[in-house]
Design a protein around this nucleic acid. Structure first.
Lengths: 339, 339
DNA sequence: TTGAAAGCGCTAACAA
DNA sequence: TTGTTAGCGCTTTCAA
């Protein structure tokens, strides 16, 4: 016959019961060393591949952790996922990844789909979700972690930072350097809630220094904002507000695009124009001049989330209250804002 | 009781059999419109979530496509995965992603783990694998696609391009521009087989023009090669071979790092030094000067792979022979090599 | 259009 | 240390 061999086939070939085969494939079960080796050897020879699907159904444990991110096309999110994945794999857990494309409606659909796979926990990016998403997550009966944000009304657990605060830090830094007429370049804020938070932080930070940030906002389009969009936004900015001294971009790639546009126009950074970004990308530390950025430590978000999940799954008891892990982003001053 | 509701619970609440509930959740089965609506409404109210695990076990279809890439920390691979994912989702398939970290041993382990989830097809990056990996894949009884390469001895299907040829193209371009003393910067070739192929192409291309490429090779370390490593390699190159006129880097980020190092040293690109990369990253088209690169069209690799998989899964019959889809990378000349 | 019975491949629970 | 029995939550198959 042609169908792939099952445990039953292996059991028959090895002259033992299926239960013995099952045990031979676990690590800490009671099987004699001799039997285990024999069974494994025969299984390998037969080309037997263990079927997790069946095991999961019976034991009601999928070994999956569901994760949603807006897009894979963003080094910060992929760093978080990479780190999360590496840490969870060590615990024998696998990531089930989905992309919401910056849409909370798509996120709802995605989460519904992911929950059908019976993940043991679910990690979502950001603090804004549809009402139905919130309900689905609360009813799911598994740990829920919101990451990359500090929601005011969290669903359950949180591993994140305040996007608004990072931009307040940045405004403080620029004002300290003597800049006053500061602009903000971001994406359409209906889409990118974290981008919107950053813009809000910019406005608040400016107000604290008695400056108006409201006026100088350039929308670069749908996120993730590309380098090209950053460059185009710079052009628009120079047309609309030619007296601008400094620009804060919603992300490092956009900031890099903005610097190249300045160079093309013969503007000297940071004398004629200061440029700052967000994300702590390698690009910012190596470009010439180096670009001031805020590093949100995406790998730490991943590892802290993994740690939290391992804790939640391993402690047998139901937990009282929800954990909240705050990550502290770091301002990394570059040559682009030091005049 | 506290456990999540099952189809049985929904059936009881709706006063129908489980089979009717099951049918109400499929699209094209025979259920009366009235019954379907009633069942779905009750299910939603109860907070019922369909359990794919059980459905998959019974129907022997997981809805998973397993995919392995070396790392998520590489824009080219994530572009391919993003595109693949988007196209497969449209067919109701979900990606099960794993990272091999550029190690064929880790890849073997990873593939073994992924096969236990009973994917309906598997996509692996690259043409070099352990003997056991090849055996596992051949025995798996599902379509196997090797992407991002054109292996000489493919396991099954292939969607890729010749990494060596891209570098021959690049050498041709540089020689055409009048460069002769050309160097290559890449990673440790034992790790990155695609990087090794590119280096081979470089050597072949040079030889075709009667030039020696063998000599000027700078190893930048374990892949993926960072911008910093590209910059450091440039430093090493200038020390070892100060007469070098042009450098081809294994990837765009490395090439960008190399250009920044040149700038720091006051070298003018492309007059004093030409720099070229690989990957067709946005970075290359927007940096100043723009950097010559080869675009391997990673999104096309993803969409073509998705298309192939859909075809293979939908045609009921066993297929004779293996498909081979060749992608044509495009040379994108930039200012960095045009003297 | 609906339902009853059987079973997908594994493991929990218990027995020997 | 090993085996037996039952069943995880669905869908296939067949019957009404």
């Amino acid at each position: 016959m042609d169908r792939p061999p099952t445990m039953k086939d292996v059991a028959r070939a090895a002259g033992v019961s299926v239960m013995t085969v099952s045990r031979a494939f676990k690590s800490d079960r009671s099987v004699s060393q001799q039997t285990r080796e024999k069974v494994r050897e025969i299984a390998e020879k037969m080309g037997y591949v263990f079927d997790s699907t069946a095991a999961n159904l019976r034991s009601q444990k999928s070994g999956f952790i569901a994760v949603t991110i807006p897009t894979i096309d963003n080094g910060n999110f992929s760093d978080t996922v990479g780190s999360l994945s590496a840490h969870l794999n060590a615990s024998g857990l696998q990531i089930l990844l989905g992309y919401s494309d910056y849409s909370i409606e798509k996120e709802e659909e995605l989460i519904e789909q992911l929950l059908r796979r019976r993940p043991e926990a679910i990690v979502v990016t950001g603090g804004r979700h549809t009402e139905r998403t919130r309900r689905l997550l609360k009813q799911a009966g598994i740990p829920v972690v919101e990451m990359w944000d500090l929601p005011t009304d969290p669903i359950d657990h949180v591993v994140g930072f305040s996007n608004a605060s990072t931009m307040e830090m940045m405004v403080d830094h620029l004002v300290e350097q003597g800049y006053q007429r500061i602009a903000f370049v971001g994406g359409d804020t209906v889409w990118d809630t974290r981008g919107a938070d950053r813009r809000r932080g910019f406005v608040t930070g400016m107000a604290r220094h008695g400056l108006s940030g409201q006026a100088r906002f350039i929308a670069g389009g749908k996120p993730p904002i590309s380098m090209r969009q950053g460059a185009d936004a710079m052009t628009e900015l120079l047309e609309q507000y030619p007296d601008t001294e400094a620009v804060i971009c919603v992300s490092d790639p956009a900031a890099f695009g903005a610097t190249t546009e300045c160079m093309r126009r013969g503007l000297v950074i940071p004398q004629d124009m200061a440029v700052a970004g967000f994300g702590g990308y390698e690009l910012s530390s190596i470009s010439h001049p180096t670009i001031t950025t805020v590093d949100p430590r995406p790998m730490d978000i991943g590892s802290q989330t993994a740690k939290l999940i391992s804790f939640l799954l391993n402690s047998a008891e139901r937990h009282e209250g929800s954990k909240r892990v705050e990550i502290s982003p770091v301002l990394r001053p570059g040559a682009s804002t030091m005049r």
